[in-house]
C-alpha cells in the first residue's frame, strides 16, 4: 500500500459543489475509474479518501488536494490524473498525483484571489469602490463577528491578514493570504462581508483559492 495525493482544480459549474458533494463526486469517479484504492472495512465499505482543507461553496480553486492509499505498491502515479479526469465533471481537473510530503496538520495559511464588483453596477463606480477598498484595508482595526464552536466572537481581522494587495485594471482584484487549517481558519468572505458593510453597497465577489502553505511558508505538497 502506498499513500497518494492528487492535486486538482475546481472551477466553473463545479464551484457550486459543496464539500460534502465533492466527496461524493470523487468517490464515484474513483469507482468508475476502477482505481484500486484502500476501502474502509466493516458493513458500509467505501473507498477511503480525505481532503486536506475543505473549500467553501462558491469558491474556485487551483490547489485542492485529496489523499488516498493505493493498494498496488508499484502503481504508476503519473497515469492517475488521466484516469480520474475521464471520470470527473469538466470543472474538476486533476493536475498531478504525488506521494504526500506534508501532513494536512502542517497547513498554516491559504492564499486567495478575490475579484470584487458591486452587485448592481449603478450603486457605485469601480473607481470609487477601489478607493474605498484601499481605505478599508488601511484601517487600524477591522472588527467582525466570527462564529466559533463556542458562539459568536468579536475579532480584529487586521491581526490575521498575512499578506494583502489590491489591483485594478478591468476588475478590482484583492490578493490575500489568511490563516488556514484545523486550528485557525479565516474565511475571506468575512473580510468581504465587512467591506460590503463598510461601503454600504451589496457586493459580488468571485473567490479563488490560489495556494495552500505550511508553517514554513512552503507550498503544501
Amino acid at each position: 500500500m502506498k499513500n497518494a495525493r492528487v492535486f486538482f482544480t475546481k472551477d466553473g459549474a463545479c464551484k457550486y459543489i459543496s464539500h460534502l458533494d465533492t466527496n461524493r463526486v470523487m468517490l464515484r469517479a474513483i469507482g468508475k475509474s476502477r482505481l484500486d484504492i484502500w476501502h474502509t472495512e466493516g458493513f458500509h465499505q467505501h473507498a477511503y479518501i480525505t481532503f486536506a482543507l475543505p473549500l467553501s461553496l462558491g469558491f474556485a480553486s487551483t490547489c485542492e488536494s485529496m489523499d488516498f492509499r493505493l493498494l498496488d505498491d508499484n502503481a504508476d502515479m503519473s497515469a492517475i490524473p488521466e484516469m480520474l479526469n475521464a471520470c470527473l465533471p469538466a470543472g474538476i481537473r486533476v493536475q498531478r498525483c504525488v506521494e504526500p510530503k506534508y501532513k494536512p496538520a502542517d497547513i498554516d495559511s491559504a492564499a486567495y484571489a478575490v475579484a470584487i464588483e458591486p452587485m448592481n453596477a449603478h450603486d457605485i463606480s469601480l473607481e470609487e469602490l477601489y478607493t474605498k477598498l484601499n481605505d478599508f484595508l488601511n484601517q487600524s482595526a477591522i472588527i467582525v463577528e466570527k462564529k466559533t464552536k463556542k458562539g459568536k466572537k468579536q475579532v480584529d481581522l487586521t491581526e490575521y491578514i498575512l499578506d494583502c494587495s489590491t489591483d485594478f485594471d478591468e476588475n478590482i482584484l484583492l490578493t490575500l493570504r489568511l490563516p488556514a487549517g484545523s486550528t485557525l481558519n479565516i474565511n475571506p468572505s468575512l473580510l468581504i462581508g465587512a467591506f460590503a458593510e463598510y461601503c454600504g453597497v451589496e457586493l459580488h465577489s468571485d473567490m479563488t483559492r490560489t495556494g495552500i502553505f505550511t508553517k514554513e511558508g512552503k507550498p503544501f505538497e
Binding site: 466553473g12 459549474a13 457550486y16 459543489i17 458533494d21 461553496l57 471520470c87 465533471p89 470543472g91 459580488h204
Partner: peptide, 19 residues
C-alpha cells in the same frame, strides 16, 4: 446568473456541468 447563485439554496441545481 453568477451574481445571484450564492444568494440561493443549492446553487448546484442551476449550473449543469455534470459528467
Amino acid at each position: 446568473i453568477e451574481k445571484y447563485l450564492l444568494k440561493v439554496q443549492k446553487p448546484g441545481r442551476y449550473v449543469g456541468g455534470e459528467l
